[in-house]
Amino acid sequence: MEDMLRTEDLWVSVGDRQVLKGVNFSMKYGEINVLFGPNGAGKTSFMMTLMGFPRYRVEQGKIFFKGIDITAHDIYERARLGLGVSFQRPPTVRGVTLKKMIEIINTNGADSAGVDAKIEKLNLGGHLERGLNDGFSGGEMKRSELLQLMIQRPDLVLIDEPESGVDIENIALVGEAINALIGKDKVKDQKRGALIITHTGYILDFVNADKGYIVFDGNLLCRGNPRDILSEIKKHGYRRCAECR
């Protein structure tokens, strides 16, 4: 089966700084992959590059999504092809309410009962008339991100630190939402995938990840079972990454 996502020798810079240094990565349809790594290693840069944010300038290499070379595609074109992203810290957009955003995203005209059920499940009924992320707590931001993605229904979702700013109680809810988003709560619809950045690994208690990687100094290292990688990080930190590079 062809890869859902593949990058070939991806070199990326932000301003004068080289943030990715020849990343080769691939993942199959239906997989959940996890990225670990210290701060500033390039995890978020990798995700933002995949999504096409212009600040992340591709100097060399290619990105293929569902067999299409999307390296030169605009952000919204990638989104329309089936890529979605949940930001760690989404911007505040005063004046554009969460309700309005849902209406705009819901281009397929999903039935309103289904949308209402999702809003209720993520406990966001009281936030619909507020500006996007305006005064939202960390957990509310995450839930709002996941709600928007559940309506957008991307084939591959990029999730940047789903646990950050979320209290223990709400992590389960976020985990459930991720599973619903990629269809892991159903027998059918197993072609959707996710790429998740995690610092703490808490999310692995709720999401059944297939593969893990360590991102270190702008490259991918140590592919393996995500739980094994996490326990290795917990024991030795990231020092060993520098050694085995």
Binding site: M51, F53, P54, D74, I75, Y76, A79, R80, G84, V85, F87, P90, P91, V93, V96, M101, I104, I105, T107, L132, Q148, Q152
Partner: peptide, 16 residues
């Protein structure tokens, strides 16, 4: 207009 806000909306499939 904040570029960050525009790109955020674009990431949901909305044209610039």
């Amino acid at each position: 207009i904040s570029e960050e806000q525009v790109e955020y909306l674009m990431s949901r499939g909305i044209s610039q």
